[in-house]
Computed example of a mutant assay.
Amino acid sequence: MAEPSAATQSPSVSSSSSVAESSAPGGGGGSPGACPALGAKSCGSSCADSFVSSSQPVSLFSTSQVHDLIFWRDVKKTGFVFGTTLIMLLSLAAFSVISVVSYLILALLSVTISFRVYKSVIQAVQKSEEGHPFKAYLDVDITLSSEAFHNYVNAAMVHINRALKLIIRLFLVEDLVDSLKLAVFMWLMTYVGAVFNGITLLILAELLIFSVPVVYEKYKIQIDHYVGIARDQTKSIVEKIQAKLPGVAKKKAE
């Protein structure tokens, strides 16, 4: 029963599956380029090699995780991230970076040392041998493998090369319009910088990131309605301006 369905497959699929079967240990079948969800030791090296050779960028957080975070799907997780980052930015706005980092490390050490001493006293009083309270976390293997390091470096290099190419294209005026747009944007940013500093802009950006998506999700219909009206009015104004410009009207006529 399986042979007729296999015969109807495309040549590319059959060829890739045959390569995967020939490269798999023991000639066992399986989907091409895929390993089991739990990861068997027999296919670990092949999975790592295919992952390293893959051109897909590596990211620490998936799109779904970021989406769930900014839309407050898990209130505790989003509240913790939002609260800690906001407190950090407000602290940086009031104090120096060295002071903020020093106080943060001192606060963390105060919590861990106090908990360590507390558990030691409890164990001495109760005469129990529970061991170190952070033993489960100390035993966690956090070693960064060379393959994972190269994956992250390759993913970062993709974005760095793209940014360098964009910078060269804008500053060397490959497209005059794009370079002029950058110049106008930077000129407007001088006025923004005269009113706000970088930390203030980061605080405002965080407030917008964690508030605008939720508001838009709740009032999506009303917002889309007014945005559509504004877009139509802007489009009509641009068309009127372009109609009065002789050069633009001539290009449209051609």
Rank of each mutant, 00 (worst) to 15 (best):
A2S: 09
P4V: 06
P4H: 03
S5W: 03
S15Q: 07
S16N: 07
S17H: 14
V19T: 02
V19W: 07
V19S: 10
S23P: 04
A24I: 01
G28V: 12
G28T: 11
G29I: 02
G30W: 04
P32L: 00
P32I: 01
A37K: 11
A37P: 04
A40K: 07
G44D: 09
S46N: 04
S50P: 00
S54Q: 08
S62R: 15
T63M: 10
Q65E: 14
H67D: 14
I70N: 01
R73P: 04
T78G: 05
F80I: 15
V81I: 15
V81S: 00
T84P: 03
L86P: 03
L90G: 05
V101G: 00
S102D: 07
A107E: 08
L109W: 12
S110Y: 10
I113Q: 12
R116Y: 06
S128K: 15
G131P: 04
Y137I: 02
V140D: 01
D141H: 14
A156L: 13
N161S: 12
I168E: 03
R169C: 07
D175T: 03
M186C: 06
M186K: 14
M186T: 12
Y191T: 14
N197E: 05
G198L: 14
G198S: 06
T200Q: 14
T200W: 04
T200L: 06
L208F: 14
I209H: 03
F210T: 02
I223H: 02
I223F: 11
H225E: 10
V227S: 07
I229F: 05
A230Y: 06
Q233R: 13
T234C: 04
A243N: 11
K244D: 08
K251E: 10
K252L: 11
K252D: 00
